[in-house]
Design a protein around this nucleic acid. Structure first.
Lengths: 228, 228, 228, 228
DNA sequence: TATGAATGAGGGTTCATTCAT
DNA sequence: TATGAATGAACCCTCATTCAT
């Protein structure tokens, strides 16, 4: 009992070393990296890892949570930016860039299962929501986008950036996609009334209801038949 | 005198069952699904799987190749479509939709390593290239996009669609991103001359060189110092 | 029932093909060669192999037996040779040479377990015994050698020849060992009365009882102690 | 401050138990013994074996290397023996005796592939070479023998001794073979000029050129034909 | 408390043998 | 009868987790 404070300091230091090693290892090799490898990088025994984290999965969650927390913390001030559009796109780009070099974050973002604790997920979504709302308010982002879309786009952009030859290219394309455009987007995702195929966006006139002249013709014939 | 061995029918049936089970299992759980699980789903012993496929990896490749071959075969006629834009976006949408429910295809598309035989990879790229070229020729697709971009976008769209609540939404957004727009895209991926941060696209005036007023100011001050 | 003779002929032919393929495969790769490989070489199904041979081990025994039978058959006339020494050494050399290129025979000869049927083992031993007896009768082979020695020497020579750079060298040395010599051989295998070490053969005087002067001295001292 | 980790004693004990079990199992059943069997004999899990030895093959190499190292270490002093012949034959006999009860060593000695690390192989060969050279210098060993022969003879003797009824008998015969003899050995390995068969050593007269009177007669006839 | 050794349940794969066709 | 497909036990090896020290 005498050395408790020292022990606590030791434990804290060990915990941090494990986390740092896990950050590194998970970032480089993903969740499949053996736990022993993490312990080795941390310079501790495997048992020590388990002293601080219940399971490997919990350690993984901690690592990802930690990353997300940093992102959230650093991005919080962006909410009050004088240029909400700039703020939103800065955030988007930064998050993707960081995650793209981090297999752990990639795998976490892509996984639909709730790896991270609810709190941080909520914080992350809240942050996105605020940035998005303000950016949309000034017309910097398409109005038909919601928070879930942005999260999905972030994850997708990360996946696309990872290991690609020209870094930043896909994320730039994604941000373009988020900007309002005079072209009429097809994000309503409506389908052809005949063949249920996708509708091509037409930039003029009223929205198309059929995907092609052939289908329009078919619909016309049907209507006649029905009316007969 | 048919040259096919007598037992072919049976073996073929089992092979097909294995392939079907593998399609299912790989699609649901990805390449990490145990081979025994595939055998179980097919209702055969593990050895039977190995009779038909040299390794688990070979089975995986077969499954993915099969999917891609179907896509390529069905899409080949699109090349001569009267509406190249429509053809391109139809293709894009169809491919993503199919793959989105298929972890195997996702993992294969995302993996840089050559899982599939070169032939099918080449066919796939060739198909994309042709559809893209024609669509760009009629102005239906942004001219600054290349085949590699499309492949990446397909894989990314798949990742984004997978397990998402509103199917088709992300792919629609992606296709929007591919359409030409009167907004000036930032796909040049240029960076702020001061902080190297991303540039926001401005739809009017000359292209921005700095990401924010603050950076522009900084640059201004630097220029004065240098000129002195 | 109509085609019985034909079937029998077919079966016989198949059996022979399996045996030939097994000869080849076992000779090249040893008993560990997969049975499927043998079936493949024979151009039959694995089931056909089992129609003719109860187990893989039985097939192996048959193969080895067959080899030994040929050896015995070919060597039988040597028994009545006018030069029994020549006959014996010819036999020895030929057997080793053949077996040295035949992993199956090597493995069978080296294995103490009775792989082959008793009959052929007996025939083989009988042949060796006769050749040996006659060769010893004319003084061509050391008299302190028996049939078991020869069998062992054959197996050992085969093992030594296999894969060696200079074929025939070891078998020549072995045959030298079998010839009578004016040096007194130590095949009595007696041991030093003190340290139980091997005795070196001395070609003159009475047989040594101690392996070295040191041991002889020790024995001398012991005797004095005991007699006191 | 000793640098040895705390747990070393325990792990060391287990490692030794694994090694001992492996010695036993490999010695009895050869390299084909299942690794699980070794673990079972050692009273540990399979994983423990892999903690100490990278692969089964590595464990096998360790076992054999260990044996050879002991042999080499114990035999090193023999090099300076006052009786080089005695030293050589002692070495030969001892090595064979030990290995004869050890399938592992047998298989390693017989295998041309480098199972053991180069160092020990080299040490072993060097030792043999030295002992052989000195023994030949004093005329205790035939001069036409080289190091490779001795290695081969050791392996062969081991194979011959293994499981044989009269231990030591074959090795004694082998050592006899190595001794110089007044009989003319056929180790030149020359062949009959007619049938290419082996020549029997004749102890008198000039070396035979044909293996039998029949061949000599044939040669005679040929010569006549050619000269005509 | 920290260590890292031990565990043992699988993982992919092989192959002697059986059996439906 | 011959086929060769199917079987499944067993192989070597990995690694998350536990536990003696």
């Amino acid at each position: 009992m005498t050395a408790t404070p020292v022990r606590r300091a030791d434990a804290r230091r060990n915990r941090d070393r494990v986390l740092a090693a896990a950050q590194e290892a998970f970032a480089e090799e993903g969740i499949l990296v053996p736990l022993d490898e993490i312990a080795r990088r941390a310079g501790v025994g495997a048992g020590t890892v388990y002293r601080h984290f219940a399971t490997k999965e919990a350690l993984f969650a901690e690592v990802v949570t930690d990353r997300l927390e940093r992102v959230v913390d650093e991005a919080r001030e962006l909410i009050d930016s004088a240029d909400p559009g700039q703020a939103f796109f800065d955030f988007f780009t930064t998050v993707v860039e960081r995650a793209a070099f981090n297999r752990a974050v990639c795998e976490a973002l892509e996984s639909p299962t709730g790896i991270c604790p609810v709190r941080i997920e909520h914080d992350f979504d809240h942050l996105i929501g605020e940035l998005l709302r303000r950016a949309q308010a000034v017309g910097a982002v398409r109005p038909d986008i919601d928070t879930a879309d942005v999260r999905t786009l972030i994850a997708g952009s990360v996946a696309m950036e990872r290991g690609r030859a020209r870094p930043g290219r896909m994320v730039a394309l994604m941000t373009d996609a988020l900007r309002p455009s005079v072209t009429k987007p097809n994000i309503r995702n409506e389908r052809c009334g005949i063949c249920n195929g996708p509708l091509s966006a037409s930039s003029t006139g009223r929205p198309a209801r059929y995907c092609s002249p052939a289908c329009r013709q078919k619909a016309h014939r049907r209507r006649r038949r029905t009316s007969t």
